[in-house]
Design a protein around this nucleic acid. Structure first.
Lengths: 175, 175
DNA sequence: TACTATGTTTAGTAATTACTAAACATAGTA
DNA sequence: TACTATGTTTAGTAATTACTAAACATAGTA
């Protein structure tokens, strides 16, 4: 069992890399966030280069993605020409930002396309046969599922206001 | 606006491919599921080859992945040597199965690793300085967030029993 | 102005993943 | 037994993605 801090930190960063990769982000993104998250003070680009082993270019672009989804914030110090980066610690805020960002994503375009398909099918329901009806039913069922998931997404956002303990209580109702 | 059924179906399958890709699965997987989902009867491997444009090999392996996560079921007919595949229509059942499957995944290994890190940090909290303490706080906060998300996953599973309408009502409480 | 410290973009490479084509395995049938 | 219809595995290719190295841009300083 390892008990020296640097090794522990390194393991943690490694875990975040894995998680990042699992969700389809570059593992470097997870590493950058991990390093920043464990740093008591904001870090410069060069410090990130040193601590993650990535090159300046990679850090530059990935840190921008992280900032775009709100997981990292960029700041500057007066009389210092470096940029400094620090991790968002309010994950609910970050999630809210990610979901907002997602509005324009390929994912949402696809979801919207399913919804449109459903409209077309509904519009033509009267003047078409059982095959059409079958397709309508299936697409509708999927759409309802998407809506349910979406409600849960909204719930995640609301968690922020409630706090974890209250959520546990509410979820208890579901038992 | 397109209103012939084959085109509508094709669009739908295309959308599912996109969604599949977005979640880090091969887009072929989404296409296979889409075709099966819109088919009133189970389809054979050769029919899937025809309708998706993929090769036998690809279908063979991807349909196995889909079966493993419970989104597709394989069946046979007496006196027919083909396998037939059909889509799971109970998405909640599928999600339950996916979450179960996830237990062994890279993702969960990483999550567990964070939890172990937290234990080590907690164990050493008494005999270490403020740096250690800082790391402990941060890792703990992340762990709590993971736990909250996990509660929501469980909630998704429970949705099945409640139905969509009730869920909407419960989520209303959160407003 | 030239120089320096910084961050960004770009062109290319390495690594990964999805997929194809074809060999292979197997169970059933003549 | 040889043959056929099926599904699987394998070796390789195509496509995609993550990343590097280095050129570039720019704001500040001497």
């Amino acid at each position: 069992m390892t008990t020296d801090l640097p090794t522990i930190q390194q393991n943690f960063v490694e875990s975040l890399s894995q998680i990042s990769r699992f969700w389809g982000f570059p593992k470097g993104m997870g590493a950058i966030f991990g390093v920043l998250y464990l740093s008591p003070a904001p870090l410069s680009l060069d410090e990130l280069v040193e601590q993650t082993g990535l090159t300046k270019g990679a850090i530059s672009t990935e840190v921008r993605s992280l900032a775009r989804i709100g997981l990292v914030h960029r700041s500057t110090k007066l009389g210092d020409r470096k940029d400094y980066y620090e991790a968002e610690t309010d994950f609910y805020a970050a999630i809210r930002s990610i979901l907002k960002e997602r509005q324009n994503s390929e994912f949402d375009r696809a979801i919207r396309s399913v919804r449109e398909t459903l409209s077309i099918l509904e519009a033509g329901a009267g003047s078409n046969g059982p095959e059409w009806q079958f397709t309508l039913e299936r697409v509708r069922a999927l759409q309802e599922f998407f809506d349910a998931i979406d409600s849960l997404n909204n719930a995640v956002i609301k968690l922020e206001k409630l706090g974890f303990v209250n959520v546990q209580r509410i979820l208890g109702v579901l038992k």
